[in-house]
Design a protein around this nucleic acid. Sequence first.
DNA 1: AAATCGGGGAA
DNA 2: TTCCCAGATTT
Length: 353
Amino acid sequence: MNTFASRLIAWQNKHGRHDLPWQGQDAYRVWLSEIMLQQTQVATVIPYYQRFVAAFPSVAALAAASEDDVLAHWSGLGYYARGRNLHKAARIIVEKFNGSFPHKFEDIVELPGIGRSTAAAVCALAYHERRAILDGNVKRVLARYCGIAGWSGDKKVEEKLWQQAEALLPPQDVATYTQALMDMGATVCTRSKPKCVLCPVQGDCVALQSDRVAELPSPRPRKAVPERSAVFLLLMHGNDILLEKRPGSGIWGGLWCPPQFEDEDAARDWFVRNGMEASEGERLDTFTHTFTHFKLHITPLRVELARKPLLAAQPGAVWLDVGEALGAAIPTPVRKVLSVLSPLPPGDNQRLG
DNA sequence: AAATCGGGGAA
DNA sequence: TTCCCAGATTT
């Protein structure tokens, strides 16, 4: 029988990717790759994945590491809550499952950062269990193949997609089939300019037959992006800079950043309140960091101190050499600012107009 | 400049 | 239960 699944499996054996570093690896590695791949494409993930497994070769090693160390290896990937959840889950696995990754779907899906699709992916890829996944690639493939219109964030639409994902599962070879769905979505059934001529299911793809490939899947309804401004206060002493650990939730949760303020006045208030001489500093060029939901215009304000104040005594504040800071758990815009800093002699500040 | 991705947590 | 949010990268 020439089903959807059998054609995908045949395609996978001929044209799929077989050399990804997490393929055929244990559940820990499959899990790690799935979490990284949720937010980032394969080519970008590979070097992060390699460094991560080298540093944390097992669930036990990951659980034994500090959250800071884990986030440092996540730095630049974004979605840092996922790095923290990964670490939390590793500690739970050590506590509750003796350090070996659980085998039951119901146990896996309970872990922080793992939902229905990721749990199913681990079960299918690592344990060869018959489970349906529904990640971004699969949503796109199924929306087109089955002609399902509407945004996949809509509950009803997502329900239909899950139903199809379950219905199309083959009786066996689920690991190969699952990899086929993902590889097909990534290389053939791409968001723009899909290569339908290379598709193993072009013959009965509803979107292709009805000439709706470009319209499916329906995009998310979008809204205007608000803009905000912020000042990064770069307190420097020689080549050392003061960084604060951000609260665990919200933007850049748990990462190290310079003190951040709504505007220069607020930065100055804080500066004076902490017993430092105000009014001197260097205003660096404003740049814009774009998030999904807003734009942040960042103005770094650099102040060179003659001596370090006692701020490091505050919990969550630390003086770091700029080089060390670049190796720490910092978000991208902070990395950008730090990488262009060069040391100035203490007290050598320009007067701000 | 716009689209994206699965899960957590707030509403 | 439903809605909103996170962030770097690609198109």
